[in-house]
């Protein structure tokens, strides 16, 4: 069961704004999907290794060789808003990570 609060929390994490009608609908739909998904809880998987990659690759690197970057003009080609060669965004109220 996915509650309205769960949906609100998750929407906030994902930076999605939901109207109240949407909140109801998503709670209902996500609950239905999660119910189905909960099927995997019935398996006892204590001794099973997780798979995050099907390739068995390891240690794939590139050499530390610089390439040509794109021009500033191209970097800003799709910018919704730009100023002084930089991307412009509304004011930042929350602190970042580092």
């Amino acid at each position: 069961m996915v509650s309205d609060d769960d949906v609100r929390y998750v929407a906030r994490l994902a930076r999605l704004k939901l109207k109240s009608a949407e909140l109801d609908r998503y709670s209902r739909q996500l609950s239905g999907i999660i119910d189905h998904i909960n099927k995997i809880a019935e398996l006892d998987l204590k001794d099973v290794e997780p798979t995050s990659h099907v390739t068995r690759l390891e240690n794939v690197f590139r050499a530390d060789t610089p390439w040509s970057s794109v021009s500033q003009e191209k970097a800003l080609l799709n910018a919704p808003e730009a100023e002084a060669g930089a991307f412009k965004v509304p004011q930042i109220l929350e602190a970042g990570e580092q």
Partner: peptide
């Protein structure tokens, strides 16, 4: 102090014109 960035080939350097050492990966 590598020559290029962690996950792409753009140059690592301090300062300079903004957004001039970028590519599809680091943007």
């Amino acid at each position: 102090s590598t020559e290029s960035k962690m996950f792409c080939g753009c140059r690592v350097k301090f300062g300079g014109e903004p957004n001039a050492r970028c590519c599809p990966v680091c943007m």
